[in-house]
Write a protein that binds this DNA or RNA. Structure first.
Length: 200
DNA sequence: CCCTGATTCGC
DNA sequence: GCGAATCAGG
């Protein structure tokens, strides 16, 4: 593959949108994230910001270390024509508030359904509205995979009622070792804080 | 371990 | 110019 005008265009676009090099590489196909990063540098748009921040001294005096332990990279080549459009829709969401002023979103209610034993449900915690908004967004683009499709790399956040055909798991790539994608990690692991002891 | 971008350097 | 290998950090 070569850097056709078109591909460069996509690269610029996605990089500008803050997409990671690996994501861009996947989108383009035929190139690795290294290639993307290399190109990005050559194009001189390594810095996404460009604000007048004083350029920190980067001597970058690097020395060749003895090459000893070679590292193999795991190649998983699966790219279904997922219509994953790189778009950044405005995060606008209606956050309903309950009696206590705790934000309740549609997504939230959607995952509390049957009252069955569900995974780590942050009960009455106060979750940042942003996190919830993100979850709502994610659930729109989630891969919606089935139980059997779950792997260590797929978000295991359940959505819907397990007793319903509409039940599915998020399925998006997990964040490092966690069982959920970034968005769901945000609502799954929330330090209980609202437990402020109030005088009565 | 997973991921990220940054840099180097042989091609 | 290109990008794998490597480095460095999260």
């Amino acid at each position: 593959m070569s850097w056709t005008d078109e591909r460069v265009e996509t690269l610029k676009k996605m990089w500008g949108e803050g997409q990671s090099a690996s994501q861009i590489a996947k989108e383009l196909g035929g190139v690795t994230r290294n290639a993307v990063i290399g190109k990005v540098h050559r194009l001189g748009l390594s810095n996404r910001a460009g604000s007048g921040a004083s350029a920190p001294a980067k001597p970058a005096a690097k020395e060749k270390v003895a090459p000893s332990a070679p590292k193999m990279e795991t190649k998983a080549a699966i790219k279904p024509k997922a219509p994953v459009k790189a778009s950044v829709p405005a995060i606008k969401e209606e956050v309903l508030l309950d009696e206590n002023g705790i934000p309740i979103s549609a997504a939230r209610r959607a995952i509390i359904p049957a009252g069955q034993p569900l995974p780590p449900q942050p009960s009455a915690n106060e979750i940042s509205p942003e996190a919830l908004a993100k979850v709502n967004e994610v659930e729109k683009t989630a891969k919606k995979i089935s139980l059997m499709e779950l792997t260590e790399k797929t978000c295991k956040w359940p959505v819907g009622d397990p007793a319903t055909p509409d039940f599915w798991f998020c399925g998006l790539p997990v964040q490092s070792g966690k069982p959920y994608c970034e968005a769901h990690v945000g609502v799954a692991f929330q330090p209980m804080s609202s437990r402020r002891d109030r005088r009565r």
